[in-house]
Design a protein around this nucleic acid. Structure first.
Lengths: 214, 214, 214, 214
DNA sequence: TATGAATGAGCGTTCATTCAT
DNA sequence: AATGAATGAACGCTCATTCAT
C-alpha cells in the first residue's frame, strides 16, 4: 500500500515519482508530518490535516484507512529515509573495511544531513518514539537502524577503536547526544550556528572512542 | 505545598506527608504522571485519569482548575524535584571550589538517582518538553536547570578541564546522552543492567572533557 | 412548610420572626431571590446560592428538598407578599363600597410600593411567570391575584366607571403596562425618575376608564 | 441570508426561500426558537435542540459557532422581522404626515400580526430581553425599535395628539400593555378571542392620547 | 476520484445532590 | 444542625469517520 512504486522503470527516487503520480497522497503525508511534529498525534485533528493539505477531509480516507495508518505511513516514510541514508553508508564498508572513526563520521554526517534537510521529519520521529499506534513495520524500521549501529560499534570494539562495554549502551548515548542537540537547536535555535552538528562530532566521537592509553 | 521540607529533621519526604494530608490529590497527580507518560497529554482523557486514581471525574476539578493545570502541577512537582537535586549539588561548590570532574559526577549521579527512583517522572518530563500548555512557572524551572548546567560548563572551561566551544551545545550533548540512555532503558529494559548509568559516566565525561594533549 | 409561624403570640410580621428564628433559611431565600432574578433558574448553580448566602452547599438541602422546591419557596414568599398587599386593599372595599378609581389607585399604589421596596422580588416574579417547575401552590397564588383584579374590574364595569369588554383583557393590559414600566425602569434606570410610577397612574387609568361620552 | 426578499414579486417569504436552500439550518433555528421560548436559554440543552430538529448534535456546530451564537441568530431573525414590520409602517409617514392615531393603529396592527403569525417568536423575544448572551447586533435591533417608538410619541406630543410626559415612559406602558395581553393570551388562551388585540387597541390608545379637555 | 455535510461517541467540564463527618 | 468533599449524570463542544453526491 505504501511501498515504493517499484514498477516504474527509471531509477528516480520514490519521492519524486510518487509526487508526480499521487500528488494528494503526498500533500497529505507532508501536512501530517508538519502538523504532527508541532502538535502531537492526538493533538492534531484529521480535518486540520486535510485543510492544511488543501484536500477534503474524506479524501484522506481514500488514501489511508485511519488516522493511525496515516501516522504509520509518515513514520515509515521518514524512518525509512533515515534508515536508507544510515545503512547505505554502512553497506559500503563491507567491500573495503574502513576505520571506525571514518564510519562514525559517515553516521554522524548522515544524521546531520537528515536533520538539516528534514528538520520536521526529525522532530516527528523523536516525538513518536514507541507510540502505541506504531505498527510492526514501523517498529522494525527503528530496530534495523539500532541493530546496524550496534554491529558497527561491536566491530569497532573488536578493532580496539571503540571503548569496551555494552554496545547498545554506547549507541544509546551517541544517538541521545545527537538528538539532544537536535532538540536544543529546535527549541533555542538562536543559540546555535548551523555548524553546531559538525562542531559536536569530535566530542561525540570521544564518547565512543577507546581511551588513549599513554 | 511543594517546597522542600527544610525544617523537618531528617527523613520525612514532602510526598509522604502530603499523601497523608490530601490522599486524593496525590492519587490524581500519580495517575496523571503515569498515564501522561505512557500516552501523551492529548492522548489521555480526564475520565481515564480519574478512574485510574480511583476517584470520580468531577473530583479532579476540586483539586485542579483544568487538565492543563493538572499537567503543570505534575510537571512542576517533578521538574522541581529534579531541579532541587541538581541545584543542591551545585550549590555546595560555592563554598569549596571543586574540580569539574567532581561536579560532573555529582550531576550525573543526581540524574541517575532521579531516573532510578522515579522512572515515570523522567519519562513524563522527556515527553513534555516545551509543550504549549506549560505555564511560565513550569518553563522557568526547566530554564533554571539549563542555566546552572551552562554555568558549570563555563567554569570548567575557564579551569581548562572542559573542552572549549559553545557551552549550551555541550550541555545539550551531555543531557541528550543521558536521556538517550534513559529512553533506551525504558524501551529495552532487558538489554541494560541497573548499573548502566554508572557505566556510562566515564564515556559522557570524555564527551565533555578537554582532550588530553600529550 | 413555608407558612407563617402562627403559634407565635405577638402579631409581628412573619418575616421578622422567621429571620430571628431561622436565619439560614432566610439567607438562602434572599440569595436565591437575588441570583435567580439576575441569572435564570437554570443559570444559577446551587453552590453559588450557598456561597452567596454564607452557608455550605449541603445546608440548602436541609431546608429545601431540591432546587425546584427552593425556587417555589421564593416565588410563594413574594407572590404571597404581593397578594397580601393587593388583596388587603381590596378587602376593605367590602365594608364600605368605594369608587373604582379609588380602588385602582389602591391597586396601582400597592404595586408601586412593592416594586419600590422589593425591586428584585418584582424582577424574579416577572422572570418566573409560568415556569414548568412552579407547583400548584405557586400557580394558585398567581391566580388569586388575577381573579381579584378581574372581580374588581367587573364591579367597576357594573358601576359604569370602567369600559366594557372582557375584564381579563383589561387586567392583562393594565398589569402589562405596569410591568412594562417596571422592566423599562430596571433596564434603563437613568431614563426614569422614581416618580415614574405615580406619573403613569392617570394614563393607565384612562386605559381602563369608561370613555367620557359628551 | 436573512434580508428581506424585496425583489420577489408579491408573497414569497424569506423563510420559505431559506428553507429550500438550507433546510437543516432552518430546522435548527426553528427548534431553538420553540424550545428556548418554552424553557429558558440555560434550560435548553443543545442535544435537545438537535433532537427536536431531527439532526445530530454535532450538526448544530456546523451552522453555529456556539449555543450563544445560535440564540443570537434566533433573536436577530425575529427581532429583525419585527423591526422590519414596525419600521416599514413608520417610514411611510415621512412622505405624507399622518395623524398620531393612525400611526398608533399601524404600530398596534403590526405587533398584532406579528404575535398572531409568530406567537413563539414573540414569546422568545419577551423571554430574552437584555440577556447577557445577546451580542451588540441583537441589542441594537432592540434599541432601533424603541427609538422609533419614542420618536413617534414625541411627534404626537408636538401635535397635541398624545399626552405630555416622558415619551419613554409612554412607550414602556403601551408596549407593556401589548405584551401583557400577549402573555395572557399565551397562558390562558381560552379566555381570549383571536380578536382580543383588536379589541384592546382603543383602550391602549386612550393610555397614550392627550386627555380630551372639554 | 473527490467531496464535505453529517454523524454520534467521546472529550473537558459543570453542577444538583448525597453523605460521612 | 451543619458541613463541604465527593459523586456521576449531563452539559457544551470536538473530531474520527462515513457516505450521498
Amino acid at each position: 500500500m505504501l511501498g515504493p512504486a517499484t514498477t516504474t522503470p527509471p531509477k528516480t527516487t520514490t519521492t519524486t515519482t510518487a509526487k508526480a503520480v499521487e500528488p494528494k497522497r503526498e500533500a497529505i503525508l507532508d501536512s501530517a508530518l508538519q502538523l504532527m511534529s508541532e502538535r502531537t498525534f492526538h493533538g492534531c485533528p484529521v480535518p486540520l490535516i486535510a485543510e492544511h493539505a488543501g484536500v477534503a477531509t474524506g479524501t484522506i480516507y481514500r488514501y489511508f484507512d485511519s488516522k493511525e495508518t496515516l501516522a504509520n505511513a509518515v513514520y515509515q516514510r521518514w524512518k525509512g529515509e533515515l534508515a536508507r541514508r544510515l545503512l547505505d553508508g554502512m553497506a559500503d564498508r563491507e567491500a573495503t573495511p574502513v576505520h571506525a572513526r571514518e564510519l562514525f563520521h559517515l553516521w554522524w554526517t548522515s544524521l546531520t544531513q537528515f536533520v538539516t534537510e528534514h528538520p520536521r521529519a526529525f522532530t516527528f520521529l523523536e516525538l513518536h518514539h514507541h507510540e502505541p499506534y506504531l505498527d510492526e513495520t514501523s517498529q522494525s524500521l527503528a530496530l534495523q537502524i539500532d541493530v546496524a549501529a550496534v554491529q558497527t560499534i561491536e566491530q569497532g570494539q573488536r578493532d580496539g577503536a571503540i571503548r569496551p562495554g555494552n554496545p547498545a549502551l554506547l549507541v544509546a548515548l551517541a544517538y541521545g547526544a545527537f538528538s539532544g542537540l537536535g532538540r536544543a537547536k529546535h527549541a533555542f535555535g538562536d543559540l546555535f550556528e548551523d555548524s553546531a552538528f559538525a562542531e559536536a562530532e569530535d566530542a561525540v566521537w570521544d564518547l565512543l572512542a577507546a581511551p588513549t592509553t599513554d
